[in-house]
Design a protein around this nucleic acid. Structure first.
Lengths: 118, 118
DNA sequence: AATACTGGTTACTTTATAGTAACGGTTATT
DNA sequence: AATAACCGTTACTATAAAGTAACCAGTATT
């Protein structure tokens, strides 16, 4: 989907998906919520993400204006990430998506069969 | 993101993104809307998608319960696709995403500068 | 001098997604 | 018999996203 970043089309939805439709960004967004979280705290809350992928995604999200990164001159280093207004605006949308997914669980595509009888 | 389809996690958002977060599915969904469209009509409305990718996506979406496929025994062949209840439930969510994208356009990351100059 | 902490980076491999171009099957029309 | 319409499939290639494992830099403590 990097391609879509270059040749942006006139379709806003495609552009939104190009920016958000990858494996981790939405998860990172709902994990951070309305507070600031340190790098290590994000990593701890999404244990299965690799360090490299996490930093890659965070960098892109900062570049896209979804996150701010604040580095404190302390020791050991402390870096805090926080959603921007733009990022926060996604929270209710992702909530709806979660509700949608929860409502329409796709367990191997089970059909609501109408007749429960023999 | 096929992987996420196999090892589904407990995070509904990640599962939703695994099912929807690719280049074309959301576009296909908002193109079909509340009506039924023939294969050729979908292709005509998304001219830049390749035939192969379109059929791949449609098949997956039928398998995921987002679409129904109805084949008419006519000539030449007529096949109509229609969103299921599950697919239709995404329309308002994608509308919000479109609004979000439109509101926060990321033209090379321009900053709203506060002072409009002297 | 070695170890530990945090927040990364680097080089490399693996896997998934998208794309291209040609072909196939059915039936009607010319 | 060839052509056209529609809805695909097939084999192959290209590109992008994700993952692994080792390494680095600054500072403090032991």
């Amino acid at each position: 989907m990097k391609q879509a970043k270059l040749n942006r089309c006139r379709c806003p939805l495609a552009n939104a998906i190009a920016a958000l439709g990858n494996k981790w960004k939405p998860v990172i967004i709902i994990v951070i919520k309305n507070r600031s979280l340190r790098f290590g705290e994000i990593a701890a809350r999404i244990r299965v993400i690799s360090r490299k992928v996490l930093t890659d995604q965070l960098k892109e999200m900062v570049a896209d204006g979804l996150l701010t990164r604040q580095e404190f001159k302390e020791l050991p280093t402390r870096v805090e990430y926080r959603l921007t207004e733009k990022g926060i605006a996604l929270l209710p949308i992702f909530s709806l998506l979660e509700e949608w997914e929860t409502k329409f669980v796709t367990e191997g595509n089970m059909q609501m069969s109408i007749s429960p009888g023999k």
